[in-house]
Simulated assay, not measured.
Amino acid sequence: MIRLILADDHPVFARGLRAVFEAEEDCAVAEVAGSGRGAVEAALRHAPDVAVLDIAMPDGDGLWAAAQMRSAGLSTRILMLTMADDDESVFAALRNGASGYTLKGSHPDDIVAAVRAVARGEAVFGAGVAGRMLRHFSRSVTVAPFPQLTEREHEVLRLLAGGADNTAIGRRLGVSSKTVRNHVSNVITKLQVSDRTAAVMRARDAGLG
């Protein structure tokens, strides 16, 4: 049996949500709160398996409530159920310990499934939220060119592309000219080019230098 508390400051929505869960044989709603502080107090009273929290609530929002539950050492897992689908709300929920994040427009069956998954220890994000996360990380993560190179070889190539000779590269990196020559040789081999000029051209084509 999954013991739940619900927190939402819209009574009609909260009653409907409670009815959804009480219709499920494996769910039991211990309490419904109408504020963030009320959610924390309910969690401390009942130590539920899952707390389903709205974000926008009076007297301590859902993010504050989630953080308070974590600080109190509760093992309660948190599912945010909210209208807010902006990036900042999603990542703030994660920072404050939420295990799942789904939107109020989701089908009731999807919300119940999300609670069950969170109770099993899984991380759950509704389809729209997951899409936002993918777009966020695809914008944020930059893949460096020439992943076959070591970090030092990549730096040598960048300096070559910027017009530095071996002596200048050695001074910049604090290594001998012989070491620089070895790095350049490795770069040429790994890039499968004929000489350093060709390596420089490849590097500049990739935006280095």
Results as ranks from 00 to 15, higher is better:
residue 199 A to R: 10
residue 194 S to G: 06
residue 28 A to S: 09
residue 97 G to M: 05
residue 24 E to Y: 13
residue 46 H to V: 09
residue 191 L to H: 10
residue 46 H to F: 13
residue 179 T to Y: 10
residue 149 L to D: 09
residue 206 A to V: 10
residue 131 G to E: 12
residue 12 V to W: 06
residue 133 M to C: 04
residue 99 S to D: 02
residue 35 S to Y: 05
residue 35 S to D: 06
residue 124 V to T: 05
residue 47 A to C: 15
residue 125 F to Y: 15
residue 80 M to Q: 03
residue 81 L to K: 01
residue 28 A to I: 05
residue 75 S to R: 13
residue 94 L to E: 09
residue 33 A to C: 09
residue 133 M to S: 05
residue 195 D to R: 13
residue 148 Q to C: 14
residue 155 E to N: 07
residue 199 A to W: 02
residue 81 L to S: 08
residue 165 D to L: 09
residue 66 A to I: 01
residue 71 S to W: 06
residue 128 G to N: 12
residue 132 R to K: 15
residue 102 T to Q: 00
residue 98 A to H: 00
residue 158 R to C: 12
residue 65 A to Q: 00
residue 2 I to T: 15
residue 105 G to W: 04
residue 61 D to H: 01
residue 125 F to D: 00
residue 171 R to E: 14
residue 105 G to K: 08
residue 32 V to D: 12
residue 84 A to D: 06
residue 129 V to K: 04
residue 150 T to E: 14
residue 175 V to H: 09
residue 102 T to L: 12
residue 72 A to G: 08
residue 132 R to M: 11
residue 19 A to K: 00
residue 72 A to R: 14
residue 126 G to N: 06
residue 149 L to T: 13
residue 107 H to K: 10
residue 46 H to Q: 05
residue 61 D to A: 06
residue 14 A to R: 14
residue 198 A to S: 15
residue 200 V to P: 04
residue 26 D to S: 13
residue 93 A to V: 02
residue 180 V to Q: 06
residue 36 G to S: 00
residue 202 R to G: 08
residue 19 A to E: 06
residue 177 S to I: 04
residue 184 V to L: 05
residue 18 R to K: 15
residue 209 G to E: 02
residue 20 V to T: 13
residue 200 V to G: 01
residue 188 I to N: 01
residue 142 T to I: 13
residue 181 R to A: 11
residue 66 A to G: 05
residue 25 E to C: 01
residue 119 A to I: 12
residue 88 E to P: 02
residue 62 G to T: 03
residue 7 A to N: 06
residue 179 T to H: 10
residue 71 S to P: 02
residue 28 A to V: 12
residue 181 R to P: 00
residue 166 N to Y: 04
residue 14 A to D: 11
residue 63 L to C: 00
residue 151 E to K: 03
residue 185 S to I: 00
residue 110 D to E: 15
residue 128 G to K: 08
residue 108 P to H: 08
residue 80 M to D: 00
residue 8 D to F: 04
residue 22 E to H: 01
residue 43 A to D: 03
residue 96 N to P: 03
residue 9 D to F: 08
residue 18 R to G: 00
residue 31 E to K: 12
residue 202 R to D: 09
residue 197 T to H: 07
residue 86 D to C: 10
residue 200 V to W: 02
residue 166 N to I: 03
residue 22 E to R: 07
residue 170 G to S: 11
residue 192 Q to C: 09
residue 7 A to Q: 07
residue 199 A to H: 07
residue 193 V to E: 07
residue 145 P to V: 11
residue 169 I to S: 01
residue 28 A to Q: 12
residue 195 D to C: 13
residue 100 G to M: 08
residue 173 L to C: 11
residue 165 D to M: 02
residue 106 S to L: 08
residue 87 D to N: 01
residue 200 V to E: 07
residue 76 T to F: 03
residue 67 A to L: 06
residue 187 V to M: 03
residue 14 A to G: 09
residue 163 G to S: 13
residue 170 G to C: 13
residue 130 A to Q: 02
residue 102 T to C: 08
residue 24 E to G: 08
residue 59 D to S: 07
residue 111 I to S: 03
residue 112 V to E: 03
residue 44 L to D: 03
residue 189 T to R: 15
residue 190 K to F: 10
residue 71 S to Y: 05
residue 49 D to I: 01
residue 15 R to N: 11
residue 123 A to T: 11
residue 90 V to K: 02
residue 151 E to L: 14
residue 195 D to F: 12
residue 143 V to P: 00
residue 190 K to D: 04
residue 33 A to D: 09
residue 39 A to W: 03
